Amino acid sequence: MAEQVALSRTQVCGILREELFQGDAFHQSDTHIFIIMGASGDLAKKKIYPTIWWLFRDGLLPENTFIVGYARSRLTVADIRKQSEPFFKATPEEKLKLEDFFARNSYVAGQYDDAASYQRLNSHMNALHLGSQANRLFYLALPPTVYEAVTKNIHESCMSQIGWNRIIVEKPFGRDLQSSDRLSNHISSLFREDQIYRIDHYLGKEMVQNLMVLRFANRIFGPIWNRDNIACVILTFKEPFGTEGRGGYFDEFGIIRDVMQNHLLQMLCLVAMEKPASTNSDDVRDEKVKVLKCISEVQANNVVLGQYVGNPDGEGEATKGYLDDPTVPRGSTTATFAAVVLYVENERWDGVPFILRCGKALNERKAEVRLQFHDVAGDIFHQQCKRNELVIRVQPNEAVYTKMMTKKPGMFFNPEESELDLTYGNRYKNVKLPDAYERLILDVFCGSQMHFVRSDELREAWRIFTPLLHQIELEKPKPIPYIYGSRGPTEADELMKRVGFQYEGTYKWVNP
């Protein structure tokens, strides 16, 4: 592979701008107003304001973009700056750019259920340069409990009458099928589907988006991507930290609602779906819905739930269990780990287990898709061969690698495990991989909904998990304890083995 010439960040961002501006969906010269509902909250200060700053800094926003914060707290732009700027990672050389960014910011205080507050917000936006005809993007960085009041008031008082209007809704989209349907029906009564952007930030990850290209742009994968060759698929999300004093919020939802029903299920769809007619948003989402419709409700015998306990040999936070978090209700049975087996009941995947695993306070930070292939028929190497695996590593250190057998150097035919490896950090030294939120917010500006969740996708996802969630809430089974920093409950490994996964433990990928 030829040595790549190092590029400056300015040059890299210039390439990104060229890609972005050559499309006809990006209205570079139009006025846009980006409204952050819930501007005083954690999500706004840690993710949304920093993301908008990065896009502005790199010249990736339309030229005439204004940012308006809205929340109940009586704040000023200076207050917003004070709480969000520490997350910007701005350099001293960017000081003038930073001043320009905050000059485009404003803030309006108001209630979430008060019509007069929204009329005041609308008047404020109209007073901005060309504000009355601007395109408006409303980001709901809010708890779902206020979605209905907020969307109703936005629709009645704050819509642009000339430009387009788009609304970005953060997960969780309800707690179960019934609450999700209620919320979807409410929002759909106010906005068209092409105006609604239900954001799952995992769909903005580079390697998640790469799944489609790997599958449908490489001839070698087509013939082997089926039940005849693939023994099982494992989708993993692991965090090495616990709730760390923020367990009160987590306890309301648990690990299945927080990660599995959305992030992991979306990745499953991209692995299992048929080739779409095109890369058009609805063509892709149509195929994802077909996959979900082929999955039956989760069966309790295919589920393992766990909850982390303190590690007596650990240090600091590792010595504390979930129930030691003062914000967690006493005696909570909320799971911090889950392993679930699903089956896609169609011709391509009949009988292939899709194993979804996620948890907190585990032994490493990792998100990946792992396809394990069947054993080689007619073994001539005296059971020395391990199964081939194709691994798409989402985070950290984005990579695609194939675990395969090669001859060990020497005189004899002794096979050993090795890999074919594409590590993004080595291959793409001159490429700026956008943060997931950067990519998705740019998608909203461009009107691309491919990486957002459609209402029928959402409904099918909740259909699969709601009976299990209701059973857990009714019966309150005690989750299996696992030690902070471990791989999780051993019962999860036993479940995976029972459905056909072979864990060798003899080879570990190392970032080159």
Rank of each mutant, 00 (worst) to 15 (best):
E170F: 03
D100N: 10
G222E: 11
I67W: 01
Y139M: 05
Y249C: 14
S40T: 07
S189P: 10
A2E: 08
G242E: 02
L20A: 14
E93S: 08
I33V: 07
E252N: 09
D194I: 05
S40P: 03
L16F: 08
S106F: 12
V108I: 09
S184E: 05
L183R: 13
N218S: 03
G41F: 05
A115F: 07
R74I: 11
L211P: 00
P144F: 13
D30Y: 08
S157A: 12
N135L: 02
E206I: 06
L142M: 09
K152P: 07
N126Q: 07
I35C: 11
F138S: 01
S8Y: 03
Y107C: 07
N122W: 04
S84Y: 10
H124L: 09
L96R: 10
E99N: 12
A231P: 00
M125E: 00
Q111W: 13
G14K: 15
N210D: 15
E252S: 07
R219D: 02
C232A: 10
F56W: 09
I15N: 05
L142H: 11
C13D: 04
N126Y: 07
P92R: 06
Y107T: 03
A141N: 12
L203I: 15
F102Y: 11
I52M: 06
A116S: 06
R104V: 04
G247W: 14
W54V: 09
A6N: 13
R9D: 14
S157F: 10
Q4Y: 06
E63G: 14
F102R: 03
S106K: 04
Q133Y: 12
I224M: 12
P143R: 05
R57E: 02
G248M: 11
L183G: 07
D228E: 14
E244A: 11
N185Y: 07
K205T: 15
N226K: 08
Q209S: 14
Y107N: 02
D100Q: 15
V150S: 09
I256C: 08
F34S: 02
D114N: 08
D100C: 13
Q195E: 09
V213K: 06
D30R: 07
D30Q: 09
R120L: 09
Y249N: 15
T65H: 01
L43P: 03
G14F: 04
L190Q: 09
T151Q: 08
N105P: 00
I36V: 06
N218D: 07
F21V: 06
R227I: 00
N64L: 04
V68P: 01
F221L: 10
Q11C: 06
V77Q: 05
W225D: 00
L43D: 08
N229V: 04
L60D: 02
R215A: 01
D42F: 09
D251E: 08
D100M: 14
E206Y: 04
S188L: 08
L130T: 12
C158K: 00
S29Q: 14
D114W: 05
I224P: 04
I15H: 06
G248D: 14
F87T: 03
L183Q: 11
K46T: 10
P144E: 05
H129L: 09
G222R: 12
L60A: 08
G110H: 00
N153C: 06
P172V: 07
K152I: 12
A127Q: 13
N122Y: 08
M207Q: 12
T76S: 07
A116P: 12
I224T: 12
Q195W: 03
I255K: 03
G242Y: 02
G174W: 09
D181P: 04
V12T: 14
D176V: 05
S179I: 04
G254L: 01
N185S: 14
Y139C: 08
W54M: 11
S84P: 01
T151H: 04
G110K: 00
F191T: 00
G248E: 15
E193D: 04
D30S: 08
S40G: 06
F34E: 01
S123F: 05
I154T: 03
A134P: 04
A141E: 02
Q178F: 09
G163K: 03
I154G: 00
F191E: 00
S73C: 09
L60R: 06
E93G: 06
T76A: 05
S117P: 06
T10E: 14
R81L: 06
F56P: 00
S184D: 07
P92M: 08
F56M: 07
V5F: 12
P144H: 14
G242P: 10
G248N: 07
F102N: 01
N126S: 11
L130N: 13
A78R: 06
E85T: 04
G69F: 01
I224Q: 12
C158Q: 02
E63K: 12
R57C: 03
A115S: 14
Q119H: 06
F26K: 06
H201D: 08
L203G: 15
T51A: 07
I234A: 13
I67K: 00
L130H: 07
E252P: 03
E94D: 12
R246D: 13
Y118H: 04
K45M: 11
W225G: 00
K97N: 04
F21Q: 06
P144R: 13
T65Y: 06
Y197R: 00
H124R: 07
S123D: 13
I199A: 14
K152N: 13
V68Y: 02
A141V: 04
S157H: 12
H201W: 13
G245S: 09
F34C: 13
C232K: 13
R74W: 11
S29Y: 13
L60M: 06
V77E: 07
F66T: 10
H155T: 05
A39E: 01
F237D: 04
P50G: 02
I224W: 04
V169A: 07
D181E: 08
Q209H: 15
L98F: 04
E94H: 09
H129N: 13
A6K: 07
I196M: 02
D58F: 04
K171H: 07
R72M: 11
F253A: 05
N122P: 00
F250L: 12
R192V: 07
P240S: 06
E244M: 10
W164N: 04
R104F: 04
S180G: 07
E99M: 05
P223N: 15
R57P: 00
R215Y: 02
R74K: 13
P223Q: 15
T65A: 08
F138G: 00
I52K: 00
N210I: 03
Q22P: 03
F237I: 11
G110S: 02
N64Y: 04
V68I: 12
Q133E: 05
N165T: 11
D181C: 06
V68H: 00
N126E: 14
L16I: 14
G174I: 08
W164Y: 04
I67F: 08
F102G: 01
Y118G: 01
M125W: 00
Y249S: 14
K82Q: 10
I224D: 04
L75I: 14
Q83W: 06
I187C: 10
I36M: 03
S29M: 14
E19S: 10
K238N: 15
A231N: 08
G14L: 04
S8L: 10
A134G: 12
M37Y: 05
R246P: 11
E239T: 11
T91W: 04
V68Q: 01
S40V: 07
R246K: 15
E63Y: 15
L96A: 07
V5G: 05
I187D: 06
I230F: 02
L98Y: 03
E93C: 08
L203S: 13
Q4K: 12
Y49G: 01
V150D: 01
K82G: 06
I199N: 03
I67S: 00
M125R: 03
T145S: 07
F56T: 02
S106H: 10
F34R: 00
L211S: 02
E85M: 08
S123L: 11
K47N: 05
N64E: 11
L16R: 07
S106A: 06
D200K: 00
R227K: 08
C13K: 07
E3L: 03
E94P: 00
G204S: 15
S180P: 07
A2F: 12
K46R: 11
A115L: 10
